[in-house]
Amino acid sequence: MPRYIATRLLSAIAMALLASLVVFLISALVPGDPVLAQMGDIAASNPATVLEWRAKWGLDLPLWERYGIFLRGLVHGDLGISIATRRPVLDDIVQYAPATVELATIAFLMAIGIGIPLGIAAAVWRDSWVDSAARAISLLGVSAPTFWLAFIMLAIFYGWLGWAPGPGRIDPIAFPPDGATGLFLLDTAMAGDWEAWWDAAAHLVLPATVLAAATIGLITRTTRAAMLDSLGQDYVRVARAKGLRARVVVLRHALPNALVPVVTLGGLAYANLLAGAVMTETVFSWPGLGRYTFRSAAALDFPAIMGITLVVSATYLMVNLLVDLSYAALDPRVRR
């Protein structure tokens, strides 16, 4: 197993570098000049200043040399300086990542917490009202555009009913907690500030629900299909014939076998939630990586784009690795 993990880690690094190379080449081919886009009007009209700026970001160097500099920096943990924010890309990522990780994690927990039980229920009571309800929820979750859903949720639960707090991570007049992790739930809990914890938790409900909606639909449908398959297997019939209680048959016998495709989907879904929160973050003014990614791409801020690509690739690859390892825990045959 250790050898398997080491091999997977090495291939993950290679894949991440390959992804960064592809992104690097694409951003180099785009005709716009990111430096001109960021300079003030006076500076942009001064050829000497433009040359100086281009040299500062290595834009005057051949393509291969620029990529070489990126790789050398990477070895030293340096992702370069963002053209748009003018500070280290790593600092930007470290600052914005916790907001996205917290949001995506809560959304993921909601997705599996709702999607798996709903999928099981839909399979157990196939063609009942529960199954119909699960189908409707799945359809709505998968088909409702995130942007639209975010507006609707915000307008109803914040604007109209006043049941939920507005955009942002905390109350407009609250001080953000001073914590080591940047994860507000964790930081406030560690500080024992339960009022701030409640505030942060409340602010997570709507954006996490919106972000989770599509994933809930996917997990529900996948769980239902996998459970139906499992429930039709001989070993389930044998278990029932032996007189086991229905709950034991479903949860102990059918469910573990049905979970393998759900875990695969869940892993990818979590990585998607981490990388795909742009719309949700925009509507809810969530200071996370999604907005940073969007702004970096719009500004052709290639050091930032490269850094984000690397982080996103690494996240996908690590999640995939964890998914593969979890197969062994779920299915004894894999361990052999």
């Binding site: 639960f157 009913l161 006043g162 049941w163 707090p165 109350d171 009022e195 409340a202 409900v205």
Partner: peptide, 9 residues
């Protein structure tokens, strides 16, 4: 849901 809004302080 109705109890999600902020605290006294």
């Amino acid at each position: 849901l109705p109890f999600l809004s902020g605290g006294n302080a």
